[in-house]
């Protein structure tokens, strides 16, 4: 164990692989020292596990109606109570975690690479390419995100898939800005020139040498944006524009519980608490990642 630690913390690593392992070790050590970041990692980890094992974890079916059990307060049988159709709210929240995770992952998978590529291309080529791409980016950045997402859903039609597309369309500009800024810092450095002299094509330089260096700051930003994405998705669900019934989407569940908020408070309150916990988890995790991976950005949100 001590020899492994010595190997990881060596001042002069013998190989690239040892240096990378050592860096990963140092980063995870720093990360583990930040209690809030660890809490965030645990919350996000639990979300992933719950989403994967939802059918085994949920005590009841998320869509199984039981009208004799409608609007029951939280009890030993139904920990979080039941809704207006007698469905177990805990089971619905557990299954709803799949939808939340799906939205978050899909938005990240669509918008992060899109933003990365646009930003890296703009920064790498410079000149008119840069000017035009960044003008488009700035237009998107200077518009209200939620309203644009609403307008896109209005044109595309309500539904989970369209909600994901609408959110992704409004999320990418921030990543393009970051990728461009990162690219500019090493655009003229010698290793890029070296690769170019070896005859690498522009595609190859951007794909293999520019993009990988932009990834860590993008990951931080994506994680920090997750809370906002979850809130926007829940907002679309609340308006009836996201996932459609009987899907147990958390925002839609709050919307249905709205009519009972005064007497059966748990119907709307419980999914809201789930949203808050998961969003806070992503905030903590993002803050922690930023402190560890990119100390320059601290407090700059």
């Amino acid at each position: 164990m001590t020899s492994l630690k010595l190997w990881l913390t060596a001042d002069a690593p013998d190989s690239l692989w040892q240096a990378q392992a050592g860096q990963a070790y140092a980063i995870s050590r720093n990360f583990a020292r930040n209690p809030l970041a660890m809490l965030g990692a645990v919350i996000v980890g639990v979300l992933v596990l719950v989403a994967i094992f939802a059918p085994w974890l949920a005590p009841y079916s998320p869509t199984g109606q039981n009208l004799s059990m409608r609007l029951m307060p939280p009890s030993a049988e139904n920990w979080l109570g039941t809704d207006e159709l007698g469905r177990d709210i805990l089971s619905r929240i557990i299954h709803g975690s799949r939808i939340t995770l799906l939205i978050v992952v899909m938005v990240a998978v669509i918008s992060a690479p899109l933003g990365l590529i646009i930003g890296a291309v703009a920064g790498y080529f410079g000149g008119w390419t840069d000017r035009i791409l960044m003008a488009v980016t700035d237009v998107f950045l200077s518009l209200p995100k939620l309203i644009m997402a609403l307008a896109f859903v209005a044109a595309l039609g309500a539904g989970l898939q369209n909600a994901i597309i609408a959110i992704a369309v409004t999320a990418w500009p921030a990543y393009a800005r970051i990728a461009r800024a990162e690219t500019l810092t090493f655009r003229n450095s010698e290793f890029i020139a070296a690769v170019q002299l070896q005859g690498a094509s522009h595609m190859r330089v951007i794909g293999l040498h520019v993009l990988p260096l932009c990834i860590s700051s993008t990951i931080i930003r994506v994680t920090l944006d997750m809370a906002g994405i979850i809130l926007t998705a829940a907002g679309l669900g609340f308006l009836g524009l996201g996932a459609q019934p009987p899907l147990p989407e958390w925002g839609a569940m709050i919307s249905r519980g709205r009519s009972f908020i005064l007497d059966q408070w748990w119907v709307a309150t419980m999914p809201g608490l789930a949203i808050i916990i998961i969003s806070l988890g992503f905030c903590f995790l993002g803050d922690g990642l930023r402190d560890v991976l990119d100390p320059r950005q601290r407090d700059g949100r």
């Binding site: 809130l231 925002g251 709050i254 709307a268 949203i275 808050i276 969003s279």
Partner: peptide, 8 residues
């Protein structure tokens, strides 16, 4: 402020 849905 970043984690609570306004409508909730």
């Amino acid at each position: 402020g970043y984690a609570v849905p306004a409508f909730w």
